[in-house]
């Protein structure tokens, strides 16, 4: 899955820049997403992962070059490029709370023959709750709706932003399974803080810091490099946690998330990332 170098990437991003309210949140970002498997987009909180995803699909104004399967999509408005075969699962689900589950799904159907069976098989819970207002679902169920909206259509690539954020460990496993199944048929660009999930799913990793790409390569190699992960993700702050992580991988996933949050809130004390501009550091979103 990682020997992709010869095949054409499904997504080719070159020199992507984006600003929000005068602040540069994505700066000259370039990377590729191979035509199969899961590519993880990593980095501390506030380095511009979500902004990068949003800039890719034009939800925030951007400049630069984005090719989907060899065709430029960076001049298209969001709705048009989505129809070219991009499935988007936003951070925080963004289901329509005052619409029913069924309506949320119907709204997302773009193809003549949406894959309802697949979705029903992946998320049987949603069938039972199809008449319920999406706003009254639990966080995990809302994530299912959000994933289902993307999986209903035949996509060339999925952009999935922190699907396990704030979910109970058991649900995290369910989401990871669904992602694994989906990845068998469609390439995925995944933003994920839970490193355990990244280890399990990702082939490649793209690491951001201060709005720039600071590392690309094999995901496992990257996660195994303590030095690099400490510097770029702010994890491994505590040597003992590292030891635990090696012994109990599942628990370590959760630890990694919490320690990365802690690290980002004390960013000033952490060593400055190599490429980050000190002036921009406080300006993270």
């Amino acid at each position: 899955m990682t020997s992709h170098t010869t095949a054409r990437p499904i997504l080719d991003v070159a020199g992507l820049n984006a600003r929000i309210g005068g602040q540069q949140v994505v700066e000259d970002v370039s990377f590729t997403v191979p035509a199969s498997g899961i590519t993880a987009l990593l980095g501390r909180n506030g380095v511009g992962k979500t902004s990068t995803i949003k800039a890719l699909i034009g939800l925030i104004d951007r400049t630069g070059r984005v090719e989907l399967d060899g065709q430029r999509i960076d001049k298209d408005p969001t709705w048009k490029l989505i129809r070219r075969g991009v499935g988007y699962v936003p951070e925080d689900r963004e289901v329509f709370g005052k619409l029913t589950v069924a309506e949320n799904l119907r709204l997302a159907e773009r193809d003549a023959h949406p894959r309802r069976e697949l979705v029903e098989q992946l998320f049987p819970d949603l069938v039972k709750r199809s008449g319920q207002m999406a706003g009254t679902l639990s966080g995990g169920q809302q994530q299912m709706v959000s994933l289902a909206r993307a999986l209903l259509n035949d996509n060339k690539v999925l952009l999935i932003d922190e699907p396990t954020k704030g979910l109970a460990p058991k649900i995290v496993q369910e989401v990871a399974e669904a992602l694994e199944q989906a990845a068998a048929t469609v390439p995925i660009l995944l933003v994920e803080q839970n490193l355990q999930v990244v280890r399990r799913l990702a082939g490649d990793a793209v690491v951001l810091s201060g709005g720039r790409v600071v590392h690309t390569g094999n995901a496992l190699d990257f996660l195994d490099d303590e030095d690099l992960t400490r510097r770029l993700l702010g994890v491994h702050a505590d040597a003992e946690q590292e030891a635990q992580e090696a012994e109990a991988p599942v628990a370590a996933g959760a630890t990694a998330v919490s320690s990365s949050v802690a690290a980002s809130s004390t960013q000033a004390a952490a060593p400055a990332p190599a490429a980050a501009d000190p002036a921009r550091k406080g300006a993270g979103l």
């Binding site: 005068g22 602040q23 501009d277 921009r280 406080g282 300006a283």
Partner: peptide, 19 residues
Amino acid sequence: DTQHPAPETGDAEAQAVSA
């Protein structure tokens, strides 16, 4: 000011000034 990105290009500076 600390919230503003440091002006790098002339354009950015003009904007920071005008803002």
